[in-house]
Amino acid sequence: MSNATVVVVTSGKGGVGKTTSTAALASALAKEGYQVCAIDFDVGLRNLDLIMGAERRVVFDLVNVVRGEASIKQALVRDKKLNNLYLLPASQTRDKDALTEEGVASVISELRMYFDWIICDSPAGIERGATLAMRYADEAIIVSNPEVSSVRDCDRIIGLLDAKTKVAEDGGRMPKHLLITRYDTDRAKTGDMLATDDVVDILSVPLIGVVPESKDVLKASNVGLPVTLSDETSPASRAYTEATRRLLGENIPVTIPEEKKGFFGKIFKGRAA
């Protein structure tokens, strides 16, 4: 039996950073030397290939594999920088109904034989694509922005993780980790943004990391590199690296990495709020 861990990165709401987080965490795990596969479940609206800079090398996709039109090995795209990191892209032309439960089950169980970590990038919403992405997961990373609609949707997703997954149906409890993204420490301090403790209180899920709002995330996606590979010193990159260490079981306190600022920068921060 394999020791692979299947992790679903999910949130309910769109645009909170699931794909960015999937790419960043998968790359950080690969940098640690693990065999890692990232799967894009967003059939019809794939983007993980673009964020990982693999869009021109996609030949076959998840739907082809599920329907038996290609083998998993044909469909896997190897990362251009890390040779132990692979992407299983979603199909761009089909819709989410092209995925079947049995098909996904067999893809995941085959991937478990080749990889240590399988990171499933869930589509937004609570429909078929999202429920299939979480269906065979061993653990879940719940991505939330410190913002009311995102937190509410996460609560809904937590309910699904506890009801519609294989782990839950077998009587187990899905281990969950909360990843807060686009965090602005200053606004939280002045009481104009939900603080990390508020979100943890409301959702009752332990925190795995806090990724600060950072310009480096957009820069990294512009050039098709996960932020953990493009700029290791950036606050977002450090936050993802920390979260990865916690995912690997290290017991380290959660910090909120900040931009390094000079003395004057700290006092007179001309920040557009």
């Binding site: 913002e147 009311v148 937190v151 509410r152 606004r187 939280a188 002045t190 009481g191 104009d192 943004m193 939900l194 603080a195 508020d198 209180d201 409301i202």
Partner: peptide, 14 residues
């Protein structure tokens, strides 16, 4: 003045 919108948000959510 300290912003209060975050505590309003937390309350509404709870």
């Amino acid at each position: 003045k300290r912003g209060q919108s975050a505590s309003v948000a937390k309350n509404r959510l709870q």
